[in-house]
Design a protein around this nucleic acid. Sequence first.
DNA 1: ATTATCTATAGATCTATAGATAATGC
DNA 2: ATTATCTATAGATCTATAGATAATGC
Lengths: 210, 210
Amino acid sequence: MPEHARNKEQAILDAAEREFLTKGFDGARTTSIAQAAGVTHAMLHYYFRTKEKIFERILDEKMRLMGESVLTAFGSPGLPLSERLRQGIENHFDFVAANPDLPRFLVNEVFARPERYEAMRQRIRWIMNPLLADLQRELDEAAARGEADPADALMLLLDVISLNVFPFLAYPVLEPLLGDLAGDRTRFFAQRKAENLEVIRKRLLKTPQR
Amino acid sequence: MPEHARNKEQAILDAAEREFLTKGFDGARTTSIAQAAGVTHAMLHYYFRTKEKIFERILDEKMRLMGESVLTAFGSPGLPLSERLRQGIENHFDFVAANPDLPRFLVNEVFARPERYEAMRQRIRWIMNPLLADLQRELDEAAARGEADPADALMLLLDVISLNVFPFLAYPVLEPLLGDLAGDRTRFFAQRKAENLEVIRKRLLKTPQR
DNA sequence: ATTATCTATAGATCTATAGATAATGC
DNA sequence: ATTATCTATAGATCTATAGATAATGC
């Protein structure tokens, strides 16, 4: 395929990504995508046949990206557990900060598309189960050595992801409450990152009290 | 207004709620709403003029409901702090469990409607700021008495809401990972509730280590 | 008299394609 | 010869309304 065509194809995908990420499948317009990509509307159908097919390309890539972000964040080599978690939380947080409307997009479109669900289930398992098993082993060993309270790897990872992702989803609702942080998105999220690290650190602390 | 008309009006609102909550504004169809409500399509416009106006009714009510859920959950009278938080987390969690697609709806539609944002900001502040001030005072007092680590009320509340809400948003993505809990939604969410209580309890524990 | 309801359709979008023309690679 | 591109438009939806008719309240 000649280079200028590749460029147009890519321009369409780039424009489609922005359109779908901000407006969702139902709100997105192929005419807007064409305009943003600087091609005539007919070109979209020439390269991709249908709106649905363009969308699938975007959704698949974004799902892969989100899964990999967790994997690469927490999949570090033989670091001590506490350090591995610290790096994992930071890396995952930074990834979400760099892609702030990715979670909203995925949550929505995956919910709206039960028909694509089965293929997705397999991929999620395939990506995440090895990580969970490895993390569980480390957690068990740390607990056995008396360095940490026992914990379930899935529950712990879900704590991290909840804490990291939710503030980005809810930011418009939170912003009015920020007081002296209002408008200062960067500082607010820096504070959130520190808080999340602290919450998880304490979650694993061995504490005699109850 | 005669009773049968009230009934139709309410039937339309009920149908619209289901349609908008599951499909969002862009995906919702006024024809589907009319059909689900058991009225002709023209009746929607007779009672509400436009799709947008029906939607506003639903969005306003749901935003109010979500705000009040936080307020009533955590606004308990003079209980000890730890007990107040425990009840707050449980009540808020139960509310979300009873309205599992409310968060997704609000996150989306609020994001998509910056034009309604200013009115919303005021209401959010008005509802939440007194609660935050009261909670902060209690946290400061507990810290001064040496019963708890110092904490920022907004950060703590955001921890709670993140932990409570996110698993409902992400459930379809999580379900393939549940292992022996797969398919058993109830047991999974019971475990999440317990985990969230534990995370927040430990967050406030006074710990000498660092 | 006013309010509620229905049928039929206007009018606005939006996706998709037909069919002609231009550019490219062999 | 094949691939890329454009203009023009078909065809499908979807929201909204016009205008007639039925029901209701005074």
